[in-house]
Design a protein around this nucleic acid. Structure first.
Lengths: 181, 181
DNA sequence: TTGATACCAAACACCATGTTCGGTGCGATT
DNA sequence: AATCGCACCGAACATGGTGTTTGGTATCAA
């Protein structure tokens, strides 16, 4: 890829995350971004179809990182198939913490769906084994939704109380959701 | 209040809820509403400041109904202070069910915050006693958020699976949230 | 009957979005 | 070193939705 492309792409990303630290996604215009990134309007739209597309791409990069394969390879076993849910959760939280400064900008406002939908999709993958293991008259789909939303809302709460550590948050989650493990 | 005002107000409400049954809030324009209601643009803005204001007012009416005093007076005791959480929840679900046709239009898309924020506010009132009773190292605020989001997401799930009865939904909720009662 | 006020259509200013245009300069290939 | 391609640029534009203004009409209540 062209060096110029990489430069402007990075400039746009940096401008975007920088703005997200100051105000929520909904109150950021494309004009704000291209002003902050110091690129032309045409250039922005050459890289991203819309503002939502930019956010979607950013979210994809975050999740690519948070749910990266090394999450499983780092340790010697597959988290989701064995009963190490606690460690897995803490791991995910650690990775999420690196993006903590601008997560509130994505999670509040009307943009939360773009983030949340993708986030929950990934979480379904992580929790699928655990949900399948539960024997209950409650529909499996409800159970899945329960676990996933529970964790997603835990993360949202965390962004409002960022002083807690990943271990503490993980502990809160597991104590209020005794269905896992 | 003037008869004319009541008439146009009702026309706007009906048009709005009618449209919400067809497509989500985000894809409804003010023009759509005034066309469906057959009122002038000026008239709409004489009644509501913005489209969000209309939704906020609608939500307020829903909650005024769902969390009405007769919820407590109908029975001979205060739900929230005694341990009749199950009955209380079922009661709320029954009332919500009456608005089921257009709830998906409010809960999907980017409008869910207007509904959810107010909904959660009311739920906090209902759950405050229950949350206070729990003795746990988990912060009270986290606990509260957990219960409230749990129920709110249960309702959201219900709108996607509306064939279940209030009793069933209530049962699902209580089984996955053993913290109540 | 009269005064107030709710209503109306039409036009408007505004703002953000996404596109189109003609032109400039970097960067790689020969 | 010459050149071709393409990333970039600013400026202008079309689009679409919002909320306001204007001047006039119809209804209600006294």
């Amino acid at each position: 890829m062209d060096r110029r492309q990489r430069k402007t792409r990075k400039a746009i990303y940096d401008a975007f995350t920088g703005l997200l630290k100051k105000r929520p996604y909904a109150r950021i215009t494309v004009q704000d971004i291209i002003d902050a990134a110091d690129v032309g309007r045409t250039t922005f739209y050459a890289h991203f179809e819309t503002k939502d597309d930019l956010l979607t791409t950013l979210c994809a990069e975050i999740f690519d990182h948070v749910f990266s394969e090394d999450l499983r390879k780092e340790k010697t076993h597959d988290f989701s198939s064995e009963h190490n849910t606690g460690a897995m959760i803490t791991h995910v939280l650690y990775h999420l913490q690196e993006h903590m400064e601008y997560l509130p900008g994505i999670l509040s406002g009307q943009s939360d769906e773009i983030f949340m939908d993708s986030f929950k999709e990934h979480l379904r993958g992580l929790f699928s084994h655990a949900a399948a293991a539960v024997d209950s008259p409650v529909p499996r789909d409800y159970m899945m939704n329960h676990m996933v939303c529970d964790f997603a809302e835990t993360v949202r709460w965390w962004t409002r109380h960022p002083s807690y550590s990943p271990e503490e948050i993980s502990s809160f989650f597991l104590q209020t959701t005794p269905l896992l493990d």
